[in-house]
Write a protein that binds this DNA or RNA. Sequence first.
DNA 1: ACAAAAATTGATTTTCATTTTCAATAAAAA
DNA 2: TTTTTATTGAAAATGAAAATCAATTTTTGT
Lengths: 145, 145
Amino acid sequence: MNYKDSFREYLGKHGLKVTQQREVILDEFLAAGSHLSTEELYRAIREKNPHIGYATVHRTLKLLAESGLAAPRHFGDGHTRYECSSEEQHHDHLICTICGAIVEFENPGIERLQELVAAKHGFVIEQHRLEIYGRCAACLAGKGK
Amino acid sequence: MNYKDSFREYLGKHGLKVTQQREVILDEFLAAGSHLSTEELYRAIREKNPHIGYATVHRTLKLLAESGLAAPRHFGDGHTRYECSSEEQHHDHLICTICGAIVEFENPGIERLQELVAAKHGFVIEQHRLEIYGRCAACLAGKGK
DNA sequence: ACAAAAATTGATTTTCATTTTCAATAAAAA
DNA sequence: TTTTTATTGAAAATGAAAATCAATTTTTGT
Ligand SMILES: [Mn+2]
Ligand SMILES: [Mn+2]
Ligand SMILES: [Zn+2]
Ligand SMILES: [Zn+2]
């Protein structure tokens, strides 16, 4: 089942309605780059759909997050960013402090050690967040934007 | 050199003044528990020093962070929290999603793997943040507050 | 298809942590 | 001590996120 059907299913199961705005916003969310802020997605949508309001974009992103289709991220710039999460598996992020580039990575070894750390302290993990901040290759080479 | 002298040194080197308020706030910051929000520290200070304003507590915490004596943390509850950072070494956090308990841990294996991940993507690490959210032992046993 | 019921929309307002303002005050320099 | 400079704290401003509410759209019921 694809994103659009999953979203429709979630809406139906929660007594929510399938609206034109929600369809457009999901389409643009899937088409636009990942890790976009509400403001960024709103601007992208507004180009083709000037009638869709900021509040609706905001609410739909929260709805996508609640439905598990989008994942909110916080990289320290004061803006909540969202990325698709349904079909992708868990990953963490490398963030360039100069150009803002975001690189995703997965590391089973780190994941395993986290489980060991949690177990050692009697915790059962629900989620985790690992963000590595530094300078990306391009910026180190003086070629960052 | 202790915290108070380090702070005085930082102030002196930056053309800033050593004030009674800053001394009191640093004292309370060191005496109070770790991972306190500005609001929490302000309340603790106000009990003995009703004349110290919220803005001054806020500014002093930022100053402590700039000087490297305090480290700001964000655990997702919308409040910036601060902890001492000067003499302690790096650590990460386990946060209970039920009672809010915060457990600190260090794991050299995870740190090493992070360096490998960063190197693989051409990044030079400046800092990182690892937060593991889950249920603590007490809450799992039904004894959480 | 039509009417009634229920949810959504979007411009606007509100919230709330954080930051800034500014006249009075305190600290450091002369 | 006098002058200069920074700090203080009450209040106001800021800004991202969330809430409001009358108008509109979607869905349900007949
Ligand atoms: Mn990502
Ligand atoms: Mn800590
Ligand atoms: Zn870069
Ligand atoms: Zn707990």
